[in-house]
Design a protein around this nucleic acid. Sequence first.
DNA 1: AGCCAGGCCCATT
DNA 2: AATGGGCATGGC
Length: 269
Amino acid sequence: MNSYIVKENIPFDIEAILTCGQVFRHENKDNEWIVYSRDKKAIIKGRTIYSDDIDYFINYFDLKRDYNKIIDALRAKPMIEEGLKIGSGIRILNQDKFEMVISFIISTQNFIPRIKKIIEKLCTELGDKKDGYYAFPTPSVMAKQSVEFYESIGAGYRAKYLLNSAKDIADGKIDLDSLSTLPTEDIAKQLLQLQGVGQKVADCILLFAYHREDTFPVDTWIKKAYYNLKGENAPDKEIRKEMIELYSPYPGTAQQYIFYGIRNREKKK
DNA sequence: AGCCAGGCCCATT
DNA sequence: AATGGGCATGGC
């Protein structure tokens, strides 16, 4: 087990990072946070990260990026202040592409606690057994299951989406890794071919797995925030376009600050 | 108890 | 291209 200490001047709030809605496989025990990604595990206490693969998690936590610069650029913009007050230590994780595709297909029209449960069952049932936990399943293992299996873990009407998308990825019809070098809109076009992936899910994958800043996932919380700001609703497409322009060059990160801020406020009510 | 959730699919227009 | 109904399941 190796460790890495995040320097004091680097924004890093492990609770905010893990609970801001970008990742679903994490636990909290006392002052200890545990996060799983692919077949890997890290334990975080304060600013210290412990893992057998510390290099993976240095990239995972996006520790090479200058978030102070991003925060300074966003601070004065609308809706950001509230999120920053409690979530200035948020970082956009560099997560596994397949894991994000599957996780955010599950996320549609769903509650975060239930999303976590379904993903946990998915790993327990299909993932390789590691030391005290289970890896995220591979595309080929997921492609071999039945629709009934995905229903049995509680995926509901998303069951067939999970199976069909896993098949398309396992078959190489969509090659997630090879998309990395393409322009954001071209990646989106490919992702949208997967069943269960619409604009919002595609944006989440682009942001959390491909680390594309020029995206802005528009979900129910963002719509609430937008309504509060403007006093009227607008089609998702229009909100997305407006927000990308407003928060450029960091709309993706801005979205997380806003999401965290408004969701935290509503929870308190 | 009943509403609704980090939306998407599909039919209609 | 744009709109609207339907949707599995379970948390709140």
